[in-house]
Amino acid sequence: MGLKGMTNKRPTKVTIESVAAIAKVSVNTVSRALRGKDGVSEKTRERILQIAQEMNYRPNILARSMRQDKSDFIGVLVLDIGNSVFTKMIKGIETELMGNSLSIIIGNSDEKVSKERHYLETMLATNCRGIIISHVNNSALKLLRQEGVPFVVLDRDTQKFECDQVYVDNNKMGYMATKHLLELGHRDIVFINKESKFDTDQRRRIEGYCSALQESGLQNFERIYSCEDAEQGKKAIFDLWRQKPHPTGLVIGQHSLAEGVISMLTQLKVKIPMELSVVIIGEPGWASILSPSFTTIERPLELVGSKAAKLLLAKTHKRDGKGAESYISEVVPSDLVIRESTGPPKGW
């Protein structure tokens, strides 16, 4: 039983029609006044805004976007929202879009084609102005092209599918990590790779690793271990250290593997860098604070996101102007950050 004077009825939702009725104007006039559009006198606009505020009116942005040719939303679809790489990129995207009075709808595909399709269809249904996507495979890109929606690919290999994209050169990241160890004098260098059915980035990093070895005449000395996760990374290191001679250099090809690999090296009491020099491709937050601190190949992830958003905005503006179609590929450089985990091998 409710308290005296209270009612169980839900409060009536204030609609744009309610505001129009009180203001004694058309719904279209209220809509134009609230959005700051022309065609409404300043006196009428102020009266409508005051009435809307007094009635506590909140516009249904989603419904409005579905009625219009385009909305104030940008879709952002990534492979793994739990991966800090994508959260940092999304932060860069959001900062850029907020500065242009746009909001984002975020989707997480978990590297599953079915989830990717679900989120794409949702974004298309809400008339997103454009989409920034880190895709599972090219079927998603073909769908967006077919629907005529502007899109930018975020740090993924498009496998020769022509489109706008912003990415970091993964081949160069693998090359830089390996070249650093070679220049220190290492000749037995292992690459630990994260295996993925769809992720071609790792293959590009391996290609960079192989290129650096080949340049030094070590093309027959490639040692590559593939792991699905950090636990498999631990096992790979355990098995590797049971074999002799031990390698003197290690490239961890994905920062999500690094925690497991470093944990096992610690358990095995491997001295870094005296016995093994280690380079991590990626940006684990602990790399700079552990002792020893770890040498990394780092990407400016927020900048990657920001550049993708800028490119998409330029694309949507060009589309509004019906300019000629052209595609831009922007490469964002990565940096070798040298710390305490790398040094010359024993006896060098």
Rank of each mutant, 00 (worst) to 15 (best):
G5L: 08
R10M: 14
P11H: 04
T12M: 14
I16R: 13
S18R: 12
I22T: 15
S26Q: 14
T29V: 15
S31D: 09
R45I: 09
R45M: 12
E46G: 02
E46C: 01
R47P: 00
L49V: 14
Y57S: 05
L62V: 14
M66P: 06
K70E: 08
D72F: 12
V76C: 10
L77D: 02
L79P: 00
I81F: 10
N83D: 12
T95E: 15
G99E: 14
E111K: 10
K115R: 15
K115E: 13
T126E: 05
N127W: 01
C128F: 03
A140S: 14
K142E: 14
R145T: 11
Q146M: 03
V149H: 03
P150H: 03
V152W: 02
V168S: 15
N171C: 04
G174A: 10
E183M: 03
L184R: 00
T200E: 11
D201K: 12
R204T: 03
R205S: 04
E207F: 07
E215T: 06
S216T: 02
Q219C: 10
I224Y: 01
S226V: 01
A230K: 11
F238Y: 11
L240D: 01
P247K: 00
T248L: 04
A258V: 04
G260F: 07
S263A: 06
T266P: 00
Q267M: 15
K269G: 02
V270Q: 05
E275D: 12
S277C: 05
I281W: 09
G282N: 06
E283K: 11
W286V: 12
A287T: 02
L290W: 01
P292Q: 10
K307T: 03
A309E: 01
L311N: 07
L313A: 08
H317K: 14
K318C: 06
K318P: 00
D320I: 06
G323E: 12
I338W: 06
T342L: 04
G347R: 13
